[in-house]
């Protein structure tokens, strides 16, 4: 259950951004979770809801966007279906994981500034 330590890092980053911009409050944040990011989105949400109390994020809902994993051939760019052997059937090259498939990214924060 590493979701708690991830949420700790997330809130720390938001606090730093809020401080930098002299924000009075945080009104929301959006996070992107790739299917292969090694993060359970529901656990992450629960961890966030538990951890945000008493922090600058206390009133900030978290919007999670899930990104399904996808693969393409590293040469011909043909899509390689999920669950298949990760090698292109046509040219034999290994598959490449598409961007975002394994990402855990803080996309945006809504800050209330004076």
């Amino acid at each position: 259950m590493h979701e708690y330590s991830l949420v700790e890092a997330l809130i720390g980053r938001v606090e730093a951004e809020a401080r930098k911009r002299g924000a009075l409050a945080v009104h929301g944040l959006s996070v992107r979770v790739g299917e292969l990011a090694g993060v359970d989105p529901e656990l992450f949400q629960t961890a966030y809801d538990t951890f945000r109390a008493g922090t600058i994020c206390a009133q900030a809902p978290l919007t999670l966007r899930r990104v399904p994993a996808s693969w393409t051939c590293s040469r011909c760019r043909a899509p390689i279906p999920r669950g298949e052997v990760l090698r292109c059937a046509a040219c034999g090259e290994p598959a490449r994981l598409d961007e975002g498939s394994d990402a855990l990214t803080l996309d945006a924060v809504d800050l209330e500034v004076p």
């Binding site: 890092a9 980053r13 911009r21 990214t105 924060v109 209330e112």
Partner: peptide
Amino acid sequence: DTELVPVELHEKILAGN
């Protein structure tokens, strides 16, 4: 009045690590 500003970050949560 205060303003609501959307700040785009697009930063890995584990960037510090």
